[in-house]
């Protein structure tokens, strides 16, 4: 069954946490390693508008459903950033517009050239390039849900767990959109399947890799995805990705962990 965009837009809300006792973090603060991971997650969420830019360079932005989804998705992800920033603020870690701007400035030439690369690729490949973005988005959203679930399990902090549960619930709807789009486009075109398989297996990296340092990526992956439980979670994401048309057998998440040297 297709994704019901009207239902999604009608029920899209910013994640709320007014009813959660964030003061509990003063009494039971998160350890520094966890705050580092949380900060990484907040950066990724706030950065969604920049990922949007890349998707907008494909012809997909002319489609009403995609346009509607991106409008709501952007706002929901922005509020995920705000929610995580509120938790960080309880630990005297400030994430404001100036900090985010400074982070984006650090990205340098790669960030500036990305939309050009994406646009050129989109022109060369044509409409099938949208399938790459949708599959990539699905992989990222599955990864995000897994990361939030792992974080909640590892911290055993009831307030954090509830907040992350609410965020993950919204991410699940994003997965539904991306997988619906990806499945349809992959099923319809062998070229889309080949290009998507090639792009994911060659270029996919854990969410946030393009905006954080290698040390931060390694820290977060070790924190959330190491050990038997972490690997089991990674395998689950891979199983979901490889269940899409033409992507059978892909193990991009586990491969990325191996490449980063994350202990299994």
């Amino acid at each position: 069954m297709g994704f019901d965009i009207d239902r999604y837009t009608a029920t899209s809300v910013s994640v709320h946490w007014d009813d959660l006792d964030l003061e509990d973090f003063r009494r039971h603060p998160l350890p520094p390693d966890s705050l580092r991971t949380l900060r990484y997650m907040a950066d990724v969420e706030y950065h969604t508008v920049c990922y949007t830019r890349d998707l907008l360079t494909t012809p997909s932005h002319r489609e009403a459903d995609v346009s509607a989804f991106m409008t709501m998705w952007n706002r929901e992800e922005f509020w995920h950033g705000e929610a995580l920033a509120a938790v960080l603020a309880m630990h005297d870690v400030t994430v404001d517009y100036d900090v985010l701007k400074a982070n984006r400035l650090k990205l340098g030439w790669k960030d500036r050239l990305d939309p050009i690369k994406q646009s050129v690729m989109g022109s060369l490949v044509g409409a099938d390039f949208v399938a790459v973005h949708m599959s990539w988005g699905a992989a990222n959203e599955w990864s995000a849900i897994t990361a939030y679930q792992r974080m909640a399990e590892l911290e055993e902090h009831p307030v954090l767990a509830e907040l992350l549960r609410r965020i993950a619930k919204q991410e699940a709807r994003h997965v539904a959109f991306y997988t619906s789009q990806a499945r349809e486009r992959l099923a319809a075109s062998s070229k889309a399947r080949k290009i998507t398989r090639f792009a994911l297996s060659r270029f996919w990296a854990p969410v946030g890799s393009s905006i954080n340092t290698a040390a931060d990526v390694r820290h977060v992956m070790t924190h959330l995805m190491s050990g038997p439980d972490g690997r089991r979670a990674a395998r689950k994401v891979d199983d979901s990705i490889s269940g899409m048309p033409g992507l059978g057998g892909l193990t991009i998440v586990q491969d990325a962990l191996d490449e980063l040297g994350i202990p299994a």
Partner: peptide, 27 residues
């Protein structure tokens, strides 16, 4: 979305205050 595409491929996407506004403006 077409307008966001036009502006986000430039330095505008780095201004977090402006992008926060634009995300809500689009909504």
């Amino acid at each position: 979305m077409p307008h966001l595409r036009n502006v986000l491929v430039t330095h505008t996407h780095k201004d977090a205050r402006v992008t926060a506004f634009l995300v809500t403006w689009a909504f």
